[in-house]
C-alpha cells in the first residue's frame, strides 16, 4: 500500500486532482481551470461548469497518475469534495470518484470543501502551529475560525450576506474588469489612492462580516460620479475591505491565544491583504501563515490533505453531494 490519498475537487469552476501524503507532501497535482469559459458571464455559469467537469475530470486524474507513476489500487483513500458548492459540479466529482473507488477497490470519503481550504496552508511544508486563528476569504466564503488541531474547528464569525470575493467580483464587473475580478481589482487598486470614504460594514461589531452594503455603496457612488478615476475607486474599495478583514482578525487574536494567523482562500492571493496581515501579525506577536498562491484557490491537494484528518478522526462521510455544509462539520 502506498501512503497516498487522491484528492478530487469539482465544487465550482476548477477540476482539480492531486496525490497527497499524510504530511502534506504533494506528489502530483493537476488543475483544469474554467476561468476563460466563465469570463464573459462575470461569474460561473453552472450548466457550462458541469459540462466542463465531465470533460476534464478523467483526463486530469490520468495526468496525475501518469506524472507520479503511482498504482491507484494501492491508494489509502480517495477524498472528494461533497460540498458546499454547485450541485451539478459536485455530482460529477462524487460520481466519478465512487466509480474510481469501486474499480480500484479503494474507499471514497466525501470531504467538506471548507476543511480543505483550512488545511491548504500545510501543503508542501508545515506552516501552521496550533492553536491557530484562520481567516478563509474566497469567492464563495468569508469565515473566521479557530483550530486547536487539524480536526477541531470552532467557527468564530462569518459573513451575514456576501463573501468578500463576491464583492470583489461585483466591483470588478462595475469597473468593467472581467472575471475573476479579485486580481484585476487589486492590480488596479495598486495604481490608485483610497480617497473615497466607502463604508466599513460591521467594523466595530463582533467577528461577523458584511460586504453587501459596501458593494452597494460602490455601485451608488459610480452611478453618481461616473467620471471618478477607476483606480481610486478600486483602491478605496480594497482599503475598506482590508480595514474590516484586519480589524476582525485583530479582535479574534486578542480574544484567545493563537500561535499563528492563517489566511486561506482565493482572496489570500491579494498582495494588499498579505501586506496588511503581515503588519498585523508583527504588532500582535503571532506568526503569519500563508499558503503558496497555487494552493489558495480551489484545488485537489487541499482536499487530499483534509482527507487524512478524516481518517485520523475516524470520520468517513459518504461521497454524496451536499450543497450547503457548515465549516464545523466533517
Amino acid at each position: 500500500m502506498t501512503d497516498l490519498i487522491l484528492g478530487i475537487e469539482t465544487s465550482c469552476d476548477d477540476t482539480s486532482v492531486a496525490l497527497v501524503e499524510r504530511d502534506g507532501t504533494v506528489v502530483a497535482a493537476s488543475t483544469a481551470s474554467q476561468a476563460a469559459l466563465h469570463t464573459r458571464y462575470g461569474g460561473v455559469y453552472p450548466e457550462m461548469a458541469s459540462r466542463a467537469h465531465i470533460d476534464k475530470i478523467l483526463p486530469t486524474v490520468r495526468m496525475v497518475l501518469d506524472d507520479s507513476g503511482v498504482d491507484p489500487r494501492g491508494l489509502r483513500a480517495i477524498g472528494v469534495t461533497r460540498g458546499p458548492g454547485l450541485i451539478g459540479s459536485l455530482m460529477v466529482g462524487v460520481s466519478t470518484a465512487v466509480g474510481l473507488g469501486q474499480g480500484w477497490d479503494v474507499p471514497v470519503l466525501g470531504i467538506n470543501h471548507l476543511r480543505g481550504h483550512l488545511r491548504s496552508a500545510d501543503l508542501e511544508e508545515r506552516r501552521v502551529d496550533y492553536p491557530a486563528t484562520i481567516l478563509l476569504v474566497s469567492g464563495g466564503h468569508t469565515f473566521l475560525a479557530r483550530m486547536t488541531d487539524p480536526g477541531t474547528i470552532t467557527l468564530l464569525g462569518s459573513t451575514v450576506d456576501d463573501s468578500v470575493g463576491e464583492a470583489y467580483d461585483k466591483v470588478a464587473r462595475m469597473l468593467g474588469l472581467g472575471y475573476p475580478g479579485g486580481p484585476a481589482v487589486d492590480r488596479l487598486a495598486a495604481t490608485g489612492s483610497p480617497v473615497f470614504p466607502f463604508p466599513r460594514p460591521m467594523l466595530r461589531d463582533g467577528l461577523d462580516f458584511s460586504f453587501s452594503g459596501l458593494k452597494s455603496a460602490v455601485e451608488r457612488f459610480l452611478a453618481a460620479e461616473p467620471d471618478a478615476p477607476p483606480a481610486d475607486v478600486a483602491a478605496s474599495f480594497v482599503a475598506a475591505c482590508l480595514e474590516v478583514l484586519v480589524a476582525k482578525c485583530r479582535r479574534a487574536l486578542a480574544a484567545d491565544r493563537s500561535e499563528c494567523l492563517v489566511i486561506v482562500g482565493g482572496v489570500a492571493a491579494s498582495p494588499q491583504l498579505r501586506e496588511a496581515a503581515g503588519e498585523l501579525c508583527a504588532s500582535a506577536g503571532v506568526r503569519l501563515s500563508l499558503p503558496p498562491l497555487r494552493w489558495s484557490t480551489d484545488n485537489g491537494a487541499m482536499i487530499g490533505l483534509a482527507t487524512w484528518d478524516y481518517l485520523a478522526n475516524g470520520q468517513a462521510p459518504p461521497a454524496l453531494a451536499t450543497t450547503s455544509l457548515s465549516i464545523e462539520s466533517f
Binding site: S50, I54, I57, V61, P72, S95, T96, G99, L100
Partner: peptide
C-alpha cells in the same frame, strides 16, 4: 434529467477507467 444523466455517465466513466 441533465444532472441525473451526468451522475450515471460520470460514474460509468470513472468505473471503466479504474477497471
Amino acid at each position: 434529467n441533465l444532472t441525473a444523466v451526468r451522475t450515471g455517465v460520470a460514474y460509468a466513466n470513472g468505473l471503466a477507467f479504474a477497471l
